[in-house]
Design a protein around this nucleic acid. Structure first.
Length: 210
DNA sequence: CTCCCGATAT
DNA sequence: ATATCAGGAG
């Protein structure tokens, strides 16, 4: 089994002070940016939110947005019809049910339209400092490659990682793996020879034999 | 499991 | 041509 404490030590060394690369000024903006980040690069999300956050100052603005107009506002992030509808409905529920404040529990966040566990844990960790493992495409892929888990279901991966990773490292671990996934351990063509975790990695040792 | 979206990398 | 990009809902 992989040496988890060595893995964490390595991640802290190579990815110190990890943070989300989504731009935001408050929990609501982070929630919006994270909803938009589905199947889209964070660079493109940041381009869209730069003007979006000026146009819609908070959940009340977004709840009253013209849907067709909002669709055009978020179009570059892809899935724009779903995202626009979810953002508008999500904002409306935040106003109606939570007095305009983004909730700070997993159950309440997940109850909002367009918000799943990945988005919820993202907001909890970065906006509220509440520990959670963010299982996105990077965390799922790299957890499997390293050999941290054999599960493919994101929820099962999340619970497996919560058992393996100390709670005070959950948020940093998520960001570090995502950074590593973008820079080194890409989905298509992972840079295994340059990877500074490869001596710990099941995938690396496996691919060399084949 | 499919659909939603389109730009980009391979 | 096809897989991938900070996923979620029906």
């Amino acid at each position: 089994m992989l040496d988890v404490s060595e893995l964490i030590k390595r991640l802290d060394k190579y990815y110190p002070n990890p943070q989300t690369s989504l731009n935001y000024g408050n929990p609501f903006e982070l929630l919006v940016a994270t909803i938009l980040s589905a199947q889209c690069t964070d660079v493109r999300v940041n381009e869209v939110t730069k003007t979006l956050f000026q146009k819609y100052r908070g959940p009340r603005d977004l709840a009253e947005a013209n849907l067709t107009e909002l669709e055009e506002d978020v179009r570059p992030t892809g899935f724009f019809k779903n995202k626009a509808k979810n953002l508008k409905n999500c904002a409306a529920q935040i106003v109606a049910r939570f007095n305009g404040r983004v909730p700070n529990t997993l159950d309440e966040l997940v109850s909002l339209p367009g918000v799943g566990r990945k988005t919820a844990n993202c907001v909890l960790g970065s906006a509220y400092g509440i520990p959670g493992i963010v299982v996105d495409t990077h965390v799922a892929r790299i957890s499997q490659r390293l050999g941290l888990t054999d599960h493919e279901d994101p929820v099962k991966i999340e619970f497996a990682l919560m058992e393996l990773i100390p709670k005070d490292h959950w948020v940093d671990f998520s960001h570090q793996i995502i950074l590593h996934g973008r820079a080194v351990c890409q989905a298509r063509k992972p840079a295994c020879p340059q990877c500074r975790l490869n001596d710990l990695c099941r995938y690396y040792h496996g691919t060399l034999r084949n």
